[in-house]
Amino acid sequence: MQRRVVFDGKLLPYLLVAPQLAVTLVFFFWPAAEAVYFSTQRQDAFGLSTVFVGFENFAAVFADPGYLHSFQVTAIFSVAVTLLAMLPALLLAVMADRVVRFASVYKTALMLPYAVAPAIAGVLWLFLFAPGIGIVANALKWLGIDWNYLLNGNQALLLVIVAAAWKQLSYNFLFFLAGLQAIPKSLLEAASIDGAGGFLRFRTIVLPLLSPTTFFLFVVDVVYAFFETFGVIHAVTGGGPSKATEILIYKVYYDGVVGLDLGGSSAQSVVLMIIVIALTAVQFRYVERRVHY
């Protein structure tokens, strides 16, 4: 895409793109290339020299039961976060689209978690569920439920899922609401005159027209669950207990920064890059198709 009328300039356009290109080259392409490079190298025990080992790091990563376990945790975590962030958001958006009174109050209040950092969201939920401290944890104990996410891996996973989904709910709500408000009211009124009830209208008109938004949010939420939730995991569980909440991005951090395994961590980074590129490609394919119809 290009404008018909443009300015003349030989040097000026290069000067204008230079700052962004410089930052992109130094902090995107160089590190990405390094990740690919280090993923094919093995460091000696002292980190002094490296040798080329081909795909050995990748083979080691995929042969590592810890990595496969982390994949499994990530799959459960991201599907649960996505569903838990999307379904209530859709319900609330449909309701907010219907009401007239207090509409802006609801909207403003539901927007708030968007401003909360994932790590802080984790701290908020930790404060509710910390055994012996949080009021929800105490209530659970009073009900006779043995709640201790510091020891129980499933409970820990549940807690980080809820905290991560809570933060992302706002984002989904805002997009669903915008999508709903873009649906022509005349369409719904026509269906109403034809005798279609509320649920039928929702299923046959609203949901299909909302599907681009839904798909977009699905990809965004999966990417969010894969990467941005690092703060939740790090602040609440630190990947534990016994790796029950170690999602892939946490493992990249843990192996690379704490474990100092540069080759393995880089190989994991490269795997993650491929996943993001695939997700983005799928999304763009879909968005493009949408533009044509």
């Binding site: 590190p31 990740a35 990249v252 880089s266 590129i277």
Partner: peptide
Amino acid sequence: TLMLPVEVRIVP
């Protein structure tokens, strides 16, 4: 660069 969030290439 859209495709490479900072978390992915964090160590390098």
